[in-house]
């Protein structure tokens, strides 16, 4: 039963989604079933949010209780969770600071703390790209040298100074080379990967629908 029920649900859901794809959603009930199922996913996801909250609180509270290394940061995490959640759940009619509208505590925390912190994390990507590019583009072999030359050419074309430099060359040669690399070799490889991945996804979906693949339940 522990295996049979999920397999049956996966089979029914998969078959319904496939069949509904081929029916007019405005004219038939079957055609609209796929959207209905996707709505269910959102509802089920909403309920599981509580599980996530419980997990964060349990893991961090246990560390605070046992005074594990860096427990003070975990305490801040817990305080932050409740400081953001409680005022946002209280009705705005009690105070303009409650709820999630503009000017509320939740909004202030999001705009002035969370958003800048996320932007900072994203901005650090530039440094990570630099260190990864240094490792990837070291000319250790013929292949790596070719990669270095290709990447330099493509990168030059994407910055104004580089474009100005490449335009010094007679004719349209750098542009043609850049176009060939990006829309020829690069695009062909990307399409190959995309076609392979799409087939892999379809094959795995079919294995799940038919109950052949049960590893997503920890079985087999």
């Amino acid at each position: 039963m522990r295996t049979a029920a999920p397999v049956a649900v996966a089979f029914l859901s998969g078959v319904i989604l496939v069949i509904s794809f081929f029916f007019n959603e405005e004219k038939t009930v079957v055609g609209g079933l796929s959207q209905e199922l996707l709505n269910w996913v959102i509802i089920v996801g909403g309920f599981t949010l509580l599980l996530g909250m419980v997990s964060i609180i349990r893991v961090n509270w246990a560390a605070v209780q046992r005074r594990k290394e860096n427990w003070i940061y975990r305490l801040f995490t817990l305080i932050a969770i409740f400081a953001a959640a409680i005022p946002s759940l209280l009705p705005p009619s009690w105070s303009p600071l409650f709820g999630r509208a503009e000017g509320s505590i939740y909004d202030w925390l999001f705009v002035y703390l969370q958003a800048p912190m996320m932007a900072t994390m994203f901005a650090t990507l530039a440094f990570y790209i630099a260190s990864a590019a240094y490792r990837a583009f070291r000319a250790r072999s013929a292949d790596a040298t070719l990669l270095l030359i290709t990447a330099t050419l493509v990168m030059l074309w994407r910055v104004p100074m580089g474009e100005a430099f490449l335009n010094l060359f007679p004719g349209d040669v750098p542009n043609i080379i850049n176009d060939y690399i990006m829309n020829g070799a690069n695009l062909a490889v990307q399409r190959g990967i995309i076609i392979g991945a799409a087939l892999g996804a379809a094959s795995m979906s079919l294995r799940i629908i038919l109950g052949i693949e049960r590893t997503y339940m920890g079985k087999g």
């Binding site: 392979g196 991945a197 087939l199 892999g200 795995m204 052949i212 693949e213 590893t215 997503y216």
Partner: peptide
């Protein structure tokens, strides 16, 4: 890369049924 990710569970299981799908 790409399809290898989807093949991984079948590959690691060594089950003929799943390998047939590949």
């Amino acid at each position: 890369m790409g399809e290898e990710l989807y093949a991984a569970s079948a590959y690691l299981s060594h089950e003929p049924l799943m390998l047939g799908g590949l």
